[in-house]
Amino acid sequence: SDEEKKVRDQAKRLGVNTEQLLKWARRQGDEDLVRIVERLLRS
């Protein structure tokens, strides 16, 4: 999905993997991002 591509691009920009991005999203309190990243991790 578009959202998932955006998440992957953001992880690349930050230089982190998906698990690290999830931690980062939780720290930001970004519920939408957390949900998308969790979906990516499960897929």
Rank of each mutant, 00 (worst) to 15 (best):
V37D: 00
L21D: 00
R8H: 06
K6Y: 13
K23A: 14
I36F: 11
R39K: 07
R42Y: 11
Q20C: 14
L22G: 00
L22C: 13
S43R: 13
K12D: 04
I36A: 08
K5M: 08
L14F: 07
Q20G: 07
Q28Y: 14
Q20T: 08
R35G: 03
D9A: 12
S43D: 07
V16F: 15
Q28M: 13
D9I: 10
Q28F: 14
G29I: 14
V37N: 00
R27A: 15
E4T: 09
S43Q: 12
R8I: 11
L33A: 01
E19L: 13
E3Q: 09
S43L: 13
L14D: 02
E3M: 13
D30Y: 15
E3L: 14
R39N: 03
E3W: 14
T18Y: 15
R26S: 04
R35D: 02
D9N: 09
D2C: 15
E31T: 10
Q10A: 13
A11S: 04
S1A: 08
L14M: 07
A25H: 01
G15D: 03
K5W: 07
L41T: 01
E31L: 13
D30P: 08
I36L: 12
D32M: 13
T18F: 15
D2W: 12
R35P: 00
E3N: 12
D2Y: 11
V7P: 04
A25I: 12
E3T: 10
S43Y: 14
R13P: 03
A25D: 00
A11H: 06
Q10G: 05
K12L: 10
T18V: 15
L41R: 02
K6P: 03
L21I: 03
Q10K: 08
R26D: 02
K5I: 06
V34W: 06
K6H: 07
Q20H: 04
K5A: 08
R39V: 04
E4D: 06
N17Y: 13
Q20E: 12
V7T: 04
R27Y: 08
L40K: 01
G15L: 09
R42W: 10
Q10W: 15
K23C: 15
L41P: 00
W24C: 14
N17L: 14
D32I: 14
D32Q: 10
V37Y: 02
K12A: 07
R13G: 03
I36N: 02
L22Y: 03
Q10P: 04
V34T: 02
G15W: 11
K6R: 11
E4K: 08
R35H: 02
I36W: 11
R39E: 03
Q20Y: 09
R8G: 06
D9L: 12
R26E: 10
D2I: 09
T18D: 04
K12Y: 07
Q28E: 05
V7S: 06
D30C: 15
R42F: 10
I36K: 05
A11I: 13
A11N: 04
L21M: 03
R26F: 07
E3K: 14
K5Q: 08
L22H: 01
R13D: 02
E38F: 05
E31Y: 13
R35Q: 05
E38W: 07
D9W: 10
E31F: 12
V16E: 02
E31P: 12
K6V: 08
R39T: 04
K5V: 06
V34S: 02
R27F: 11
T18R: 11
D30V: 14
K6C: 15
E4C: 15
N17I: 14
V7Y: 05
D32Y: 13
V16S: 04
G15N: 06
R26N: 02
R13I: 08
L14V: 03
E31M: 13
D2K: 10
A11C: 15
R39P: 00
R39L: 08
K23S: 11
G15Y: 10
R26T: 05
L14N: 02
V37M: 05
G29Y: 13
I36V: 05
R13K: 08
K23W: 14
T18P: 12
K23P: 01
D2N: 09
R35T: 03
Q20N: 05
A11G: 04
V16G: 07
V16K: 05
E4H: 10
G29H: 05
E38K: 12
K5G: 05
V7R: 06
R13S: 04
V34R: 02
R42T: 03
T18A: 13
D30F: 15
L22F: 02
K23V: 11
E19F: 12
A25F: 13
L14Q: 03
R8W: 13
V37H: 00
L41K: 01
